[in-house]
């Protein structure tokens, strides 16, 4: 039996791990990967102590700080459920392993939202991308569609108009990104903005060849011939493992108190998976620290 199981290897989980290790509580860190969303950020300019740092480098430094302590780490395991038994927790992974602990910190972050349309899963990687900063150059000289109207969609479009033959922005709503970002792209000659359009399906042969869209006001349908589709429609919290036991808000985020408590004694949550306002690396790290200190207090109060 562990004292504490931390689920998640992003800024919240790794910071919690350091704080827990320094309290000498028997801790296991289970995570699907190290870094989570930070791996998809190349330029970080607002994490204190660094004027500029790349995501993977920052995570490498976080992890070095974690591994200097004798703490068990299980990277590459996805947790499927957390359940409460009497006065301890059972954490199950997708590969069928189970672990028990007195307290749990959920720090699983968020992931890209999917469109949930026919063809999306089939063509993932074959034209459908969720990482514009990674894959945009592969589509140089081709026609592409960016789905979404927020900042990440607009930033993806800004990168793509420099390389692609043509860029379509397909958004269900008016553009919601910052005006400064909208101004940077709106006059591009190779850009078409299609507002109030919904994606219906993605089709192709070996690779994506077209996306079918529908005007939600008029019902008019269009087929855009594109080789690439960049899905930038926001994020969803990875709160599934605790959805049976903890309270979630309307977006699926775990509701927490100012001390990272979930309402389930011994279950704490930190970082982007929670309803804490503002999703930032520095905030997630701070919340991770708070959750670990609170968990330590909880474990000590249990005694034995």
């Amino acid at each position: 039996m562990y004292d504490l199981i931390i689920i998640g290897g992003g800024p919240a989980g790794l910071t919690a791990a350091v704080y827990a290790a320094r309290k000498l509580i028997k801790t296991l860190l289970i995570s699907q990967d190290l870094g989570g969303q930070v791996n998809e950020t190349l330029r970080i300019e607002n994490y204190m102590g660094y004027q500029f740092v790349e995501g993977p480098e920052l995570i490498e430094k976080f992890n070095k700080q974690v591994t200097q302590y004798p703490l068990e780490q299980k990277v590459g395991s996805k947790v499927s459920s957390v359940s409460r038994l009497d006065c301890h927790f059972e954490v199950k992974t997708e590969s069928g392993e189970t672990f028990q602990s007195k307290a749990v910190i959920l720090a699983t972050g968020k992931r890209s939202r999917s469109l949930n349309v026919p063809g999306e899963a089939e063509y993932r990687g074959k034209g459908v991308s969720y990482c514009a900063i990674c894959d945009a150059p592969v589509f140089t000289g081709m026609k592409v569609a960016v789905i979404g109207g927020g900042n990440s969609a607009l930033e993806a479009s800004y990168d793509l108009i420099k390389m692609a033959e043509h860029v379509y922005i397909v958004s269900l709503t008016p553009l919601t990104g910052d005006p400064i970002t909208i101004n940077r792209i709106k006059d591009a000659r190779n850009l078409t903005i299609l507002l109030e359009h919904q994606v219906e399906k993605i089709e192709g042969d070996k690779f994506v060849e077209a996306v079918h869209i529908k005007n939600i006001k008029t019902g008019e349908r269009k087929r855009l011939e594109v080789a690439g589709i960049f899905v930038e429609i926001g994020l969803v919290p990875n709160s599934e493992p605790v959805k049976e036991i903890a309270a979630l808000n309307q977006w699926g985020e775990v509701k927490v108190s100012t001390t990272c408590e979930t309402g389930v004694p011994g279950l704490f949550a930190a970082g982007d998976v929670t309803d804490t306002p503002e999703k930032q690396i520095v905030i997630a790290a701070g919340e991770g620290a708070k959750a670990a200190l609170q968990a330590d207090r909880y474990i000590r109060n249990l005694g034995g």
Partner: peptide, 13 residues
């Protein structure tokens, strides 16, 4: 790889 891709950076690291 591409120069802007963080996962590429991670692979090379």
């Amino acid at each position: 790889s591409t120069p802007t891709c963080p996962w590429c950076k991670k692979v090379k690291m």
